[in-house]
Design a protein around this nucleic acid. Structure first.
Lengths: 136, 136
DNA sequence: GAGCTGTTTAGATGAGCTTCTATTCAGGAG
DNA sequence: CTCCTGAATAGAAGCTCATCTAAACAGCTC
């Protein structure tokens, strides 16, 4: 089953990742590779308006406020969320492009259905799927 | 707040992740949140036939064989790859379902493009997008 | 069977990460 | 102006992780 190349798998399985690209992706992945930060990201993204106050987040965890603040900083440093102070409270929101970039890495263009369905739907948007990591 | 609209964002941004689910996902994400393991996964997946011998992988890195073996074990423990000994050499291959599960977490069903973004075709595979983590 | 190659396991070391307490900065209330 | 609440920073303790060297296991070749 020698695939003649092209769009068969997820970007990560299409061609070997360069050392530089892997290092940069690992930073982003390491940011979400923590139960607390994963939940923080989920809570921020699923909050009404796409924004969540820190005060809403701290109550959910059995962690101190500085610890939550630290995790938020890690997410912000990785470019996954953005924070804004509005009066007394600080609101965070997800940066969709960054999250989408992570998903595109592992999402195949075809269904990995267990059955014998090797049909592939090379979507028209496949052209925009690139291994480039730097947005600008 | 139970959002009535189901398909608006990536699963991670649709509803808050449960503590248990986040912990399990973090294990898988932590496995790929390393430059070496990310490249190993990419090299295995992009190899001809979807299989790669350990001997092919060790030559690419400036690491000792035991270190590569350790990283492969981490990936295998996380359920991302599977290994099989065939004679002298051991061949590893990606488990597509596991990789797909990671991608589905961050991949939105609609494009979050802020401006005149290229509309992503929500592929037919979107129906299989679920928050379920346990395959069985 | 003896020897060699390929792979994994065991143990140790050093760096990095998560969490805390204590303190400082930002902004509104009286 | 003074005090109070919300959030971030600084520094330290404890733990996990990535990597190495040394040794053991698996299988082929002679």
């Amino acid at each position: 089953m020698t695939v003649p190349a092209g769009q068969c798998c997820a970007p990560i399985a299409r061609e070997p990742l360069a050392e530089d690209a892997a290092a940069e992706l690992a930073v982003m992945l390491k940011a979400v590779a923590d139960p607390v930060r994963l939940r923080l990201l989920s809570m921020i993204g699923s909050h009404a308006g796409g924004e969540a106050c820190v005060c809403d987040l701290t109550g959910t965890f059995d962690l101190t406020a500085p610890t939550i603040s630290h995790h938020l900083k890690v997410l912000r440093t990785a470019g996954l969320i953005d924070g804004e102070r509005r009066g007394t409270w600080v609101y965070y929101r997800i940066i969709p492009e960054a999250v989408n970039r992570l998903g595109a890495l592992f999402t195949p263009l075809t269904e990995p259905s267990p059955g014998p369905g090797p049909q592939l739907t090379p979507g028209p948007a496949a052209g925009s799927t690139e291994l480039e990591l730097l947005p600008a």
